[in-house]
Each structure stands twice: as C-alpha cells, then as structure tokens.
C-alpha cells in the first residue's frame, strides 16, 4: 500500500467515524474534479452532471466501508463516478463523450493528429484552443490534486516559487521539488495522450 493510500485509508475511517472536517475536506477536494470530469462527458449538461456527481458521492459514501486503501481514495471515487456515469448513459441511452482513456480512443487520437498537422491543415485557432484547453485541463485534473494546483499557481497565476512555498507552508526548495515533480507528472500524462507534448503545440509555432 502506498503512503497516499495509507493516508487515505485513515481519512476514510475518520469520515466513517463521523469526523465532519474530514468529510468536508474530502468533498471540497473531490467535487470540482469529479464535476468537471462528468460535465465534459455530458456535453456541458450541468443538470445531468449534478445528478451524476451527487449519485457518485451518495454511492461512494454508502460503500466507503469497502475501501481498503488499495488505491488512492480519489481514484476509488473516480471509479465509482465512472460506473455511475456509465449507468446513467445506459439508462438514458445517452451517448457519453468518452475521453476517459484518451490514448486508447481512435477518435481522440484523430483529434490529436489533427492538432499536430501543419498550419495549413489546421482547423481554426479557436477550435484548437478549445480542444487543447479541454485536454490539458482534463490532464491537470487527472494529476494528484496538489500537482494540479501548483501548476496553475505557477503558469496560470504567474506566482513565484517562493510565493507557492509560502502558500504550501514549505521551504522554497521543497516547493521547487514539488513543481518539478508536477511538471514531470503532467508531461508523462500528456505524452500518454498525445504521443508527445509537441503534438499540442499551437498552430503557427512550428
């Protein structure tokens, strides 16, 4: 059992024992990621996304006793969410926008190949931005929670490593190390999807 899973098992036990702080912390950490995950697969239908995520939490909490710490707790909830989403698609006969395993899906690979094509063959830049944004954000969401936050603080908000260290309450060196690991994790994840991050280079940059 990894350290993360070991910690998460303790969190699950605290939640089951009635610890309000542990429950609320888990909800606040998981809700946005699961919501975005579901929303992307329901073509932006917020009502449906809310229903699926709500059912995910209710199911997950009801079955939390069965969590044994084999994987991170988020991964466990993510699986509950996927199953709930599939059930929803089955019951409603709704075609879900499946981008769960991006690298395995021919249609997604086709999108990425299109993105990697020469500028003359590119769709409009707006489409590129929208598709890449969606894929990049999905990748960031799939990273360990802290990694996603650090990457956004650094590259979206433009915060310095020192400032990030202050937010995390760690040394500059530790923040630097976390940032490096976050970047590597992102690179690995995006490479798994696109073959190479260069495939996502903006049109006109090649």
């Amino acid at each position: 059992m990894s350290d993360v899973a070991h910690t998460d098992l303790a969190v699950a036990r605290r939640i089951l024992s009635g610890d309000q702080v542990a429950f609320r912390s888990l909800f606040d950490r998981f809700f946005p990621r699961l919501y975005r995950f579901v929303l992307a697969r329901l073509d932006g239908d917020h009502d449906a996304a809310r229903d699926v995520v709500q059912q995910t939490f209710c199911r997950g909490i009801e079955r939390l006793d069965s969590y044994r710490g084999e994987a991170a707790l988020y991964t466990w909830f993510y699986q509950v969410c996927r199953n709930t989403l599939l059930d929803y698609g089955r019951h409603t006969r709704r075609e879900l926008r499946v981008i769960v395993r991006l690298e395995d899906l021919p249609d997604v690979r086709a999108v990425l190949e299109t993105l990697a094509a020469p500028l003359s063959e590119q769709p409009e830049t707006g489409v590129w931005r929208s598709e890449v944004s969606r894929l990049v954000q999905a990748t960031v969401d799939a990273l360990p929670e802290r990694y996603g936050e650090i990457l956004e603080w650094k590259y979206v908000d433009g915060q310095s490593v020192r400032h990030i260290a202050g937010r995390l309450g760690v040394s500059d060196k530790a923040a630097e190390s976390l940032l490096t690991r976050a970047r590597e994790a992102f690179r690995e994840a995006i490479t798994a999807m696109a073959g190479s991050p260069d495939a996502l280079e903006p049109p006109g940059r090649t």
């Binding site: 931005r129 890449v132 944004s133 954000q137 979206v156 903006p202």
Partner: peptide
Amino acid sequence: VATLIRTAGRR
C-alpha cells in the same frame, strides 16, 4: 508545459 497550461487557463 508552461505554454500548454497557460493556454488552457485555470480550470
């Protein structure tokens, strides 16, 4: 990596 994340923006 920075460009991609910056382009995508905050979730």
